[in-house]
Simulated scan of single mutants.
Amino acid sequence: MADLFEAAGLTPPHPAPLAERLRPRTLEEVAGQDHLLSPEGPIGRMAAARRLSSMVLWGPPGVGKTTIARLLAHAAGYEFQQISAVFSGVADLKRAFEQARVRRQAGQATLLFVDEIHRFNRAQQDGFLPWVEEGVVTLVGATTENPSFELNGALLSRCQVFVLRRLDEAAQAALLERAEAAEGRDLPLTPEARSALVALADGDGRYLLTLAETLFGVASATPLDPPALGRLLQKRSPAHDKDREGHYNLISALHKSIRGSDPDAALYWLARMLEGGEEPLFIARRLVRAAMEDIGSADPMSLVLANAARETFEHLGSPEGELALAQLTVH
């Protein structure tokens, strides 16, 4: 193939990224979402019956939302049409709906996949309603944000919401094995480093394959151990945001860890928020709330210590004040 390109005076095309080359070709190949895609799962049943309902796929990045929509259309015999809320406007929506209407008249159903659907404003979301109601399109929206907060109630009432999970260790291990089979060689990692690689990906299959592709390009006579892996890949910024889904998920996890008397988990979530750039005084206020609501009369001193930790942080600032938050969390 390279010789043909050279004879024509062209440069051979670059190979597709590993994540793209390993994109599943059937719903059965999608990793980590058996609760939805198995023959007993709701989406698996729809695909088998070849009758689809409008739905919203809610989950973190890299878990297969786009892939599932594409394969679902293929399995059910629908025409797949994709738009992105980031790049599309009203004109693009009208064009998509008109194309779907023409297909319907010809007897062809359309699955309209809308990536990042939460980025459409309320008026744009209302524009979907008549087309979904009439069955001109079967809408499949993908979002990383809580649909209850970001999507119109009228649109949600016409869609089922399916929650996609972060890939567990078994699913990520299967992805790495698939990558090694595609490359025809093993990753240059010790077993401990392999576990560290999975932990670094944090359930994001696309990111895991991106890291694996980097490692396949490493010329190493001996397998890399965890410290060598860390030096090569550096570290990934923890998933966090200031006012969206990650913000509420992490503070909720801190509350639940305190309520469950798990100091190690509580310290982990505290450190993850601080590392992610969360406002420490916000955390301090939430710890005061936990002392008052979750502990209360079971340990009245908790509220006194919580207020003292908040005042300590206000007086000392970071990083010394963060120790007061950590000590309070352990208490």
Score class of each variant (00 low, 15 high):
D299L: 06
A309E: 13
R259A: 15
A173L: 12
L57G: 06
P188L: 14
A228Y: 07
P17L: 12
F97Y: 11
I68H: 01
V102I: 13
G77V: 13
L10P: 00
R285H: 15
A109P: 10
D3C: 00
V288D: 01
N249Y: 02
A196Y: 01
E192N: 02
D262S: 14
V136K: 01
N249W: 00
Y207N: 05
A196M: 04
P15E: 11
K94H: 10
G205Y: 07
R122D: 02
K242R: 15
P191M: 10
V218M: 09
A170D: 07
K65E: 11
G321F: 12
Q81F: 10
S54V: 07
L287I: 11
L215R: 10
P60N: 09
L22D: 04
W269P: 09
P300L: 08
A271S: 13
V137S: 02
S88M: 07
A96D: 03
L164Y: 03
L112W: 04
E213Y: 12
L323H: 04
A16L: 15
P263C: 13
V132E: 10
L197D: 03
Q108C: 02
A19K: 13
S53W: 04
R259F: 11
A2N: 14
N121C: 09
L267F: 04
L167P: 05
S38F: 09
S220F: 02
R103H: 12
E322V: 01
A181Q: 15
A7M: 07
